[in-house]
Amino acid sequence: MAAIEADLFAHGLPVEALMEKAALAITAALLSAPSRLKQGVTVLVGPGHNGGDALVVARELHQAGIPVRFWSPFERHKPLTARHLEYALWLGIERLSAAPDPAEDNLWIDGLFGIGQSRPLDPSIEVLLEQRQRRRPGRLVAIDGPSGLCADSGQLLGRVAACAQTTYTLGLIKQGLVQDTALAWVGELRRLDLGLPKGCWKRCRPNSPWAWLPPTGTGPRPPSWGRSGPSTAADDCCWCAAASATAAPSNWPCWGPVPAVAAASGPPCPR
């Protein structure tokens, strides 16, 4: 996905445009399940573009009438993210001065770090995410991938990661998110379509998990695992943590074999 994004940017697509497309897709998915938003949301905002995505989601939910506040414990942000942060404050969205209470009942949206993360989380953030899962399991969703989890290998980068009820992966399924070691942290995996140009798909290797899905509008969609009802254009893929990658049905529309997944290892399942 990083290579596809680099190609798009090199040919003139503004970073801002892709960020808006991603965040609007996430917002639509969240608003489609209003019961989860009744208590409001707390958005965890990182310093990079994952944090920018999160701030656009915060903006859109706020404008839809959802009570929103955000927490970003970082002094510096990438320029685009900093501009979104400034605008969120101008709109009147509350910025928390201290870490949110892990026992609160509202929905947490993890936008701390995205698929490019390579270092362990700060220990204080690890403790916060661990306490959140212990006190309010199932009340956190992740943008693109849970913070603290490598999207390439599916391994923890530190001691723990964000434990998501749902992970909204953007554009393409990331290889690490379907490894056995990652499933308990990822939760229900939903791929959100970004309307990428058809030429982008030529970069997908045939035996990669992100090639399991055809471009939107071309061919059948897979069954929707972990939820009721058929898949839709806005919900191209739904993966349940209870299902292993090796359990993909024989009629799955893919270009090549389902990749082998890593043996489960690491800390006990957080669920």
Rank of each mutant, 00 (worst) to 15 (best):
I4P: 02
E5R: 10
L13K: 02
L18H: 08
A23T: 01
L24G: 01
L24F: 14
L24C: 04
A25T: 06
A28I: 00
A28Y: 01
A29C: 09
S32M: 08
A33K: 09
A33W: 02
P34S: 10
S35L: 11
L37M: 04
L44W: 09
V45R: 07
P47W: 07
H49S: 06
H49F: 07
N50I: 04
G52N: 08
R59F: 08
E60C: 02
H62S: 13
G65I: 02
I66H: 07
F70T: 05
P73K: 05
F74P: 03
R76S: 09
R76W: 03
P79T: 14
L80I: 14
T81Q: 01
R83G: 11
L85I: 06
L85P: 08
E86R: 11
Y87K: 02
A88C: 15
L91A: 01
L91Q: 12
G92R: 06
A98N: 10
L107H: 02
W108I: 01
G114T: 05
G116H: 00
Q117K: 00
Q117C: 00
D122F: 03
S124I: 05
I125C: 04
E126I: 03
L128Y: 03
L129H: 02
Q133V: 06
Q133F: 01
R136P: 03
R136Q: 14
A142R: 08
G145I: 12
L149A: 11
L149C: 12
D152K: 10
Q155Y: 06
L157S: 13
A162S: 12
G171L: 08
Q179V: 07
D180R: 15
R190K: 14
L196K: 07
L196S: 09
R203M: 15
C204K: 09
P206Y: 01
N207T: 08
P209E: 11
W212V: 14
W212R: 11
L213V: 14
P215W: 14
T216V: 11
T216R: 15
T216S: 14
P222Y: 00
P222Q: 10
G229P: 04
P230N: 12
S231Q: 10
A233K: 13
A233I: 04
C237W: 13
W239D: 08
A241G: 10
A242N: 14
A242M: 10
A245Y: 00
N251Q: 15
P253N: 14
C254D: 05
W255C: 11
W255R: 15
P257T: 04
P257N: 02
P259Y: 05
P267S: 09
P268I: 12
C269W: 11
